[in-house]
Write a protein that binds this DNA or RNA. Structure first.
Lengths: 131, 131
DNA sequence: CGTACTGTATTAGTAACCTAGTACACAGTG
DNA sequence: CACTGTGTACTAGGTTACTAATACAGTACG
């Protein structure tokens, strides 16, 4: 599936939410596909079921997942994409954070760009592998 | 100086520490220069003095700042740079985080790279302006 | 000396996040 | 029906990050 870093500063539920969205963006999860049950994913990621449940609820509310109570949770038929404005904002915010730490450790723009490319490659590959 | 985002997921003290390191990396703060007093910076950034004090202590311990108790805090004569290994690790971690959210919002590698470049530009400009 | 500025230390309180445990309601299967 | 696996709800507890208030210690200056 994907990995979680409990010692990372960003909350676990955010990491899980992004993980699921990535899987869908990359096509590792397609419309109609079932996602792991709350308890299963919690066990796999070694987190509390409540944390996963919260993410599924958020994603269902956002139109990304469809919940069939008592049966399971599935990728929505037409999974909602972030609105253009929201996408831009989040992208800009994340880019600022990355540029900020890159500058703080004394990395040049080229070094930062190269490392970004490698990360993109790696994440894409990992998700496609487990599709 | 630089900006702080209290609603951001990363702790305020991390943002401050990175901010100071950026200023030094970019030459806005030079060896021997005084940095704002704990209380001054705290007031400017609208944070608690203890938070700033903690950052200064960490940076002093790391060899980036030199504290002259009762007098003030200054950039070290030869401010320590992160070790190569540490630099690589932090860069990779930050790049992974950025690539992760970029993929989650459905951004292409090109879009992410372009946004990164803009952020680099902006941060560099801001710091040089206030040097 | 006294005053005013530095950094430092200690204690207490608040909020967010996560964990843990339990219980309930719905769907599928035998 | 019983049984199992779904999502959901609720309460309680711990940890971490930050705030708040206060006090202490060193330096500069008049």
């Amino acid at each position: 599936m994907f990995d979680i870093n409990p010692s990372h500063s960003s909350p676990i539920w955010v990491q899980i939410e992004e993980g699921v969205r990535r899987m869908i963006s990359l096509g590792a999860l397609k419309p109609g596909d079932p996602v792991p049950s709350v308890r299963d994913l919690a066990r796999t990621l070694r987190v509390n079921p409540n944390t996963v449940a919260r993410v599924y609820q958020r994603l269902a509310e956002a139109g990304v997942l469809a919940v069939r109570r008592g049966e399971g949770t599935y990728v929505a038929d037409d999974p909602a994409q972030p609105k253009k404005a929201e996408k831009s904002e989040k992208l800009r915010e994340a880019a600022t954070a990355y540029a900020g730490t890159a500058l703080a450790v004394g990395a040049t723009a080229d070094e930062a760009a190269a490392e970004l490319e490698r990360s993109y490659e790696r994440l894409s590959r990992e998700h496609r592998r487990k599709a």
